[in-house]
Design a protein around this nucleic acid. Structure first.
Lengths: 200, 200
DNA sequence: GTCTATAAATCGATAGAC
DNA sequence: GTCTATCGATTTATAGAC
């Protein structure tokens, strides 16, 4: 990465703070209930200043998703390359569930077409999503070949299921119940998820 | 049920039409993106007339959920009483997935606290939700005792999982893909769901 | 780039005539 | 109860001074 001038570093730091706030507010309230005023107040700057960095509310959400996907790729890079494919997938699922229980999983409604259009038109987002999908896809087909996952399922079904378990509402329901530890909740969902994907 | 006067029947029919519209719009756009203006336009009456029947947007959503829970209870009554408990649960899951793929599963965000407060203060909704939960709960514990479901899981975890699979985004993702039939999609999700709940 | 102030549009809810 | 018309509040986004 090219060296940045001091001014550019300050700018980058501020934008990081903005996106971190957006990420937390998206996890807490969801896209529709989050207002740009709240983001500006949370960062501590004026709303008009926000719009100098990001052109729309949808772009703010896209930036948060890009941040999340980057973190996911960084996590993938920490995994030992010689582990079993299904264990790599287990590690990823465990990480995503931890993120959600920590209240840091941004939640975007699938029904908002303006948001969907913005995401589908964001090259950086699509590129990262494809990178994550391809790395998971390779592990999925390898795990199916090894018999650790049901070979009868289209890899697509497995991939979508893993994405969906990352924002499974069951996690929040069990956590709000209050009588189980985060790790206990994760273990139950991990076992039911992967036992289901392995098949009978 | 007491006999209704003609005027009351007309009123009931109109309210049924309203709730049916709300149900469809909730499934299509979700609670936050659905506007009361749209509901009024879809039913073909003025917005002010809507508010003579339902006091708020939240009450409209609650009425749609009550309608869904009544339909669920009616479906439970059609099931043969002598079937295996796990098969009863399979039938329920199959029904909920059909409802969702038909575009008739209302989607309510978990983060909207005004909506949550309205639901938690709605006695009719809570009563129906408890009825459904108790009937499913009885089947869950029976299936666990029979070894058809993992006895190590708290019944609560199973119940929440079944509720969550009724609005699993994986269904919509696979359907929008377009190359699979509804029944094929349901079969994949049914098998992964119940294989996971049965355990290794 | 950051601010104050406000435009422009939308939405939930209501008043008042019939 | 249904309508037209509108209120009041909220929200996204921008203008213009500094």
């Amino acid at each position: 990465m090219a060296r940045l001038s001091f001014r550019e570093q300050v700018l980058r730091t501020r934008e990081d703070a903005i996106v971190a706030s957006v990420n937390r507010l998206l996890a807490e309230k969801g896209f529709d209930m989050m207002t740009v005023d709240e983001v500006a107040a949370d960062v501590g700057i004026a709303k008009a200043s926000l719009y100098k960095h990001f052109a729309s509310k949808e772009e703010l959400a896209a930036a948060a998703m890009i941040r999340l996907l980057r973190q996911a790729l960084a996590f993938l890079d920490t995994l030992p390359a010689d582990a079993e494919p299904v264990d790599q997938l287990r590690s990823v699922a465990h990480w995503t569930m931890q993120v959600q229980l920590a209240g840091e999983m941004p939640s975007l409604p699938a029904q908002n077409s303006a948001l969907r259009a913005a995401l589908m038109g964001n090259a950086a987002y699509l590129d990262l999503l494809m990178q994550v999908s391809e790395r998971l896809g390779a592990w999925i087909t390898a795990a199916q070949a090894a018999g650790s996952l049901n070979p009868g399922l289209p890899p697509e079904v497995v991939l979508y299921t893993l994405f969906a378990r990352a924002c499974d509402p069951v996690l929040g329901l069990l956590k709000s119940n209050g009588q189980y530890s985060d790790e206990q909740i994760i273990q139950w969902l991990m076992s039911t998820c992967f036992a289901g994907l392995k098949g009978p």
